[in-house]
Amino acid sequence: MLERAGLIARSVPGRTHTCRLDAAPMHAGMEWIRHYERFWGGRLDALQAALEAEDDAARPSHKSRSQR
């Protein structure tokens, strides 16, 4: 599976199988993950702020009727 994904390279000199890690595909995957982490992080922060603002607006005021 790792060989098909391009993460390891195998050589077979005689009866010995030698595998070598190729981390380049992992770097591309990490860049993809970082992109979406920033994308969704910003969206989720905005959603949290909107929900908190909605909660604040829905809470009854702490002022008594005489102070209004």
Rank of each mutant, 00 (worst) to 15 (best):
S64Q: 11
E37A: 07
A50R: 15
A5H: 03
G42T: 03
A58F: 02
D55H: 11
M26F: 12
Q67D: 04
S64P: 00
R15N: 10
S66R: 13
A58W: 07
D45A: 15
L47F: 09
L51K: 07
P25N: 02
Y36R: 12
A46E: 07
H62I: 05
K63L: 14
R10D: 00
H35E: 11
D22T: 06
C19T: 06
R20Y: 12
D55S: 14
T16F: 14
A58E: 04
E37N: 05
R38P: 00
S64R: 15
T18H: 09
K63P: 01
E52D: 14
E37V: 08
E52P: 03
Q48G: 08
H17F: 13
R59D: 08
G42F: 01
T16L: 13
A5P: 03
R59G: 00
R20W: 03
R34G: 02
L47A: 10
P60L: 06
A57K: 03
D22F: 06
D45G: 08
R10K: 11
R38T: 15
A23V: 09
R59A: 05
G41A: 07
D22S: 07
P25S: 04
E31C: 04
H35M: 06
R68C: 08
L7Q: 01
G42R: 02
S11K: 10
S64T: 12
E54D: 13
M1E: 15
E54L: 09
R20P: 05
D56R: 03
A28H: 11
A49I: 04
H17R: 12
R43H: 03
L21K: 01
S64L: 12
G41E: 01
E37C: 05
